[in-house]
Structure formats: structure tokens, C-alpha cells
Design a binder for these strands. Structure first.
Lengths: 204, 204, 204, 204
DNA sequence: TATGAATGAGCATTCATTCAT
DNA sequence: CATGAATGAATGCTCATTCAT
């Protein structure tokens, strides 16, 4: 009975499983060597399948890239980042920043592809655009709410949002360049937020 | 006679000229289509020479990329950005930011290559690293000097420097994504600097 | 009960039915795109079955071609063409010609395959050979009988038979090339027969 | 001196030579195994060059086929066939037929390709069409001239021309099928012509 | 120097065939 | 029987690199 009931599933489920593996493998392989230099054979081998099988799941190497990027689009996670709005502004911003940083860290490969292939591939570019816009939008929304509560000065939230997004994004992206820093990651994030919040100019 | 005497010179100068043309062509072609997708033939044709001749100047396509990136390394320009230290801090910072932004704009192609090939090519990565570090270092140096004059609070200049660098860099990099902004480029830069200088938190 | 009893029958009949469908589909698909360019998947899909199932009926794509050609061999029909031997020679010849022409028209796909694959596939070649020979033989036989009756001059019937066969075959094969002709198909056939019967030379 | 003068030629001439070899090799290989089954590698190897070099001369396998067919188009030769119009009709027709037959024999490979690929490739079809039309036209023209002189009866020359063309063409095409014939090639041709000229019907 | 013909390894993709389900 | 997932050899084509001229 069990087998009979499960049989129809097992093939499909293996296909689904393999598709996911393929998507993940593709992300990491493309990130590793770039889209053009990565061969279908290499991806397939790393995914544990034959090269021909890839074409059962995706019509081309390019579509595989697009599917992979779309699977690893982390918009939902990004939207989820902004939740507890009751805490003080600084705390919330740091929390957002840290979680955004972690997300970037986790999706490092996707980020790399976004940056590398965004100019050649329209769909990839769209994903990158939507991530940037959305990231900035989430922050703007939060900043506006805190202007309303009087916690923040009236200011151009778009500017601040993009600044914050840029700082966290670039911090993540360049952190192996600046490894000699005296601060750890969280300290850096906190101090960056404080810069934006308090400024660096003395009250002369 | 004349020709005999001039040949070595004219040859040399032609060689140098061609090398430079090749380097510039390479930068723009690589930026356009990515390193792997760009063919030697295409670069050579755009540079007005035969594909074989490239190999007289550079031992391989990869070395051409490296030479091209090294030629377009804009460290000297970046160093020149920080000159007039007599003006008020805000003015200087804005001036630095605007000039840095212009430099990025001008070297758009190099930037793109830096980002795209930085992970595959060691030399390219080094250039990217040195640019980031130096960019941040220049700013740090300036910030320190203004802490010394009392114009700025005592704070971690490394953090601020990286923040400023990130903001300008990302602003340049993502500006076609956020075209609907109500501010023009210079206004955005100014307000970003002001955020960092004055903060956004209200003095409750 | 019913189903149990009928299954063996219905299966067999379904098998036979499918085999026939497969054969017909194969003929038209192969004729359309050539043997090499036509895929098993395409044939199977057009026949309404899975690609794997083809291999239950035929051991390979090549054998399918051979079987298809053998099924569509129209020798029996060709033999049936020559029946009413009582009518006058001209009438009979025209009748033969028209019916042969119709047969060629009807088996257009087979003809095309015969011509296209006859050189690569031994069995296909054999079919083509047997059709030509038989076609010619049927005509020879008829011509001889009419020489015996005195209706025709004594002459080399092999030559005439092949001429007649060639004329009708090529007429059918090239008829879309010569569409601008002032004659319709039947008129052309009649006049061709008359050429052979009466000649074109004047009785100077 | 000689070498200096010839050097510029030698490269070009080798290219031209190779192009021609390629074209001839292609014709015979495509005729042998059909277009789809013949590999570029095979053609190149038979032509004594590397597979990649083919793409210096022709942009694709398909274009090679077309170029090959166009090179082997024998329209000029066909036109040259009809020259001596002073001799008696029968003599001229036999001469035309024999020479046409020889031409077909010589261009056997082209014919085969014309027949095999005429349905898949537009350019090939055009060549086939033009050959048939022209072949028939040449004959029509001659027949008309001999009707004018009174040597031939007034009749539809289009029909006769196509009949003659068909007979010779098919005779050449099917001659290995009918090898057991009691007649040799020339005898067959002569008797075919006589059938058309004199008819086979007895003057009852 | 300068050219571009020539090479051949390498790649994306296809497809006949097999076989687990 | 029937399916279609899976395989992998084979193919057209590209392109960095070499080298004769």
C-alpha cells in the first residue's frame, strides 16, 4: 500500500530534490568562477547528475542561472527583517543592520552573481534592482515612522536609507579587504549606525 | 636616411600608442561584455589591429586584462583629490565626495571589471583592494586631521571613512536603479555628508 | 469478467493499432524533415505515445524507418493497376499512367523517403529498387501483350517501359516546379502517352 | 625575386585552393551520407584541414552545403550542350541526351544532394528548380526550331521536353537498378529518343 | 613588425537508447 | 505495458593561441 501510494511521489520528489540541488550548485559554481567560465558539465557533476539531465530541468545554462538567482532572491527574508517597531530607534536599526548583514553573508554567492552578471543578464539585473529598491524602501519606511514619533529629525529619508543600505552592503562586500580592523563586525555596524544617528561633528 | 633614423623612434612611439589604445579598448570591451565573453579578435578589431598583434604586446588575454586594469588604476587621481585642507570640513568633504564620485563615473568601466573579475583574477583583486583601502585611508587621514583641529568629535575614523567611501561608491554604482529620486546627484551627496556630520537623531 | 476476457484482445488490438499509427506517423515525419533530423520523441509525441514505448514496438529508430517504408510499399497497389486488358492500348496506358500518378501522389511521403534515404539504408534501397523494377515490369508485360496482338510495333519494351515510368514519376516529382504549364495534369499525361505512341517526327 | 613576387599570392591561392577542395569534399561527403549524418569534422579531415578552419571559409555547415551546391550547379554546362543545330534532328537529340547523361553522371553527387536536401533547404531547392526548368527550356527551344523547319510535327514542346528530360534523368538515376539490361547506356538513350521520335504504335 | 590563416581543445546542446518505477 | 527520467556519446561551433608569410 505504502509503496503504491508513495511511488508516484518518489519520482517527482527526486526530480524536485534534484532541481533544488541543481539550483544551489549553480549558485555556488557561478559565484565561484563566473557564469561564462563555469561549465554545465561541472555544475552537473557537482550536483551528482549527468550533464544531459540539466536540460530536462532547464532549457539552457542561461535559464538555469536565472532560475537559480530567482530561487535565491531573498526579498521575503529582507521584508521579514523589519518587525519589532516598538524598541528604541537605535536598537531597531542595529537589529535591522545586523540581520541584513547576516542575510548578505548567507547569500554571498547570490550577491556575487548579482554583481557579476547584472550587466549581461536582464533578469539578473531586475533581481538586483528589486533588492536594492526594496532594501532601501524598508529602511525609508522605518525612518519615516520614527520621524513621526519625534525620535528622528525631519530629513530626507531616502538619502539616509540609501546610506544605511550602502554602508551595510559594502561592509559585507569589502570585509575581507579590511580584516586588520580593530573592530569586530558587530562593533563596526553599531558605530556606523551611531555615525548616522549622532553625526561626527562637534558642537563647537 | 631620415626614415632610418626615425624609425626606431616612430616605432617605439607607435608601439606605445598602440599599447595604450589596446589597454583602453580592452577596458571598455571587458566592461561591456565581461572578460570571458569578450574575444581577443573583437578587442583587436576595435583597436584597429590584427588579433595576432595583441600577442606582441601582451602574452595572453589575461595579462591584457591585468595590464588594462593596472593602467586604469586611479590611485594617483584619488590621492590628488585630497588637497585643499584649509577650507571648512563640510566643504572639503563634499568636495572630496564630488570629485571621488566624478572619478568613479569616469572610470565606470574599470569599476565594473573590478567587481566582475575581482574574484577570478588575483591581480584584479589586488587593485580593487588597494583602491578601497587607499580610498578609506585618504578619508581617515583627513578626518583625523580635523579631529585634531577640534572640528570633529573624537571617533573611530576608520568606521566613518568606510561609511563615506561606501556611500559614494554605492551611490555611483546604483544610481540608475534609483533614478526617480527627487534629488540630483550633488544634492544627494551633500545631504549624505550632512547625515554623517550632523546625524539624524533629534536632540530631545 | 468482461474486461478480463477482453483485455488480451484489446491489448493486442491496441498494440496493432498503435504500431500502425506509429508507422504512419513515422512516414510523414521522416518525409517532412528527413530521417536524421526527425527525433524519436517527436514521432512518439505525434503518435500520442511516450518515446520509450516506441522501443516496445521497434528495436530502433532505424528499424522503425524500415518497417514504415515496408508498410507503405505500394507494390500491391501497383500490381492492381494493370487489370482491364481488353480496352484499346492507348486507353489502358493512360489509365495505368493516371492511376500510377495518383498512387505516387498518395504515397508522396514514402517517395520522398525512398529518394532521401535510399542511399544510406539498404532496406530502403531495396524497396525503391523493387518498386522501380516492378513498375517497369508491369508495363513491359502489358506492352509485350499488345505487340502480340499487333497493336504495337515490335520494339524493345524495356526501353519503353522505363520511359513511361520515368515520365510519370518525374512528372509527379517535379510538378510544383512547372506549375505555370498550360496543361492540367491529366492532359499532360495523355499527351505524354501520345508522344510515345505516335512519335513526334513528321512523315516527311 | 620570384618568391617575393609570389608570396602575397601563395597565401591567397592556398586559401582559394582549399576552399575549392572543401567544396568538392563537401559535395561528395554530403552525397555519400546525407547532410545531417555527415560531420564537419569528417569533411574537414577528408579535405585535409582542421575542423575549425572550415569556419574561416564558411559561416556554418549549412552555408557550406549551399556554397557547394552553387559551385556544382551545372547550368553553364547544360546551356553549352545545345550547340550544333545544323545536323539532323535525331542526331542532335541523341547528342544532347548523351551529353546531358554524361553531365549527370559527372555531377552524380550534386544530383543526389539536390534530391535529398531539396525539401529542407531553400537554396538547394532553388538550384534544383532552376536546373529542371532550364533543362526543359533548352529542349523546348530546340524542338520548336525543328518544328519550324518541318522536321517535327506541330506538338506541345513542353510535354516532349519534360518527357525527354525525365527519361534521361531517371535513366541516369536508376541505372544501377536495371543493370541486367541487354542494352548499353548509349543504345538505351538512342532507342528512347527513337520512341519519342517515331512512336511505338503500328500503322495499322 | 604585422597579418590572419590554421589549429584543436573545449563548450553548450541534442538525442537515441535504457531502465527504474 | 507505459512512462519519461537519466545517461553520455556525439556534434556544430568558438576562440585563445601559434606561426608561416
Amino acid at each position: 500500500m505504502k509503496t503504491v501510494l508513495e511511488k508516484p511521489n518518489s519520482r517527482k520528489s527526486q526530480m524536485e530534490k534534484r532541481k533544488l540541488i541543481l539550483l544551489d550548485t549553480a549558485i555556488s559554481k557561478f559565484a565561484e568562477g563566473g557564469f561564462a567560465k563555469t561549465t554545465v558539465k561541472d555544475i552537473a557533476a557537482s550536483a551528482g547528475i549527468s550533464s544531459g539531465l540539466m536540460y530536462h530541468y532547464f532549457p539552457s545554462k542561461e535559464k538555469l542561472l536565472e532560475a537559480a538567482i530567482e530561487k535565491h532572491i531573498f526579498l521575503p527574508q529582507m521584508r521579514r527583517i523589519l518587525t519589532d517597531t516598538k524598541k528604541p530607534c537605535r536598537e531597531v536599526l542595529i537589529n535591522i543592520a545586523v540581520r541584513f548583514y547576516d542575510l548578505l553573508e548567507q547569500e554571498k554567492n547570490s550577491i556575487r552573481i548579482l554583481l557579476q552578471e547584472g550587466h549581461s543578464n536582464t533578469k539578473v539585473k531586475k533581481v538586483w534592482d528589486s533588492l536594492s529598491s526594496e532594501g532601501s524602501a524598508i529602511l525609508q519606511q522605518f525612518l519615516s515612522s520614527r520621524i513621526a514619533t519625534g525620535e528622528l529629525k525631519t530629513h530626507n529619508t531616502e538619502v539616509t536609507a540609501r546610506c544605511l543600505f550602502s554602508i551595510i552592503f559594502m561592509f559585507n562586500f569589502t570585509k575581507d579587504i579590511f580584516k586588520s580592523s580593530s573592530l569586530n563586525d558587530n562593533q563596526f555596524i553599531e558605530q556606523s549606525i551611531d555615525s548616522i544617528l549622532n553625526g561626527i561633528q562637534s558642537n563647537k
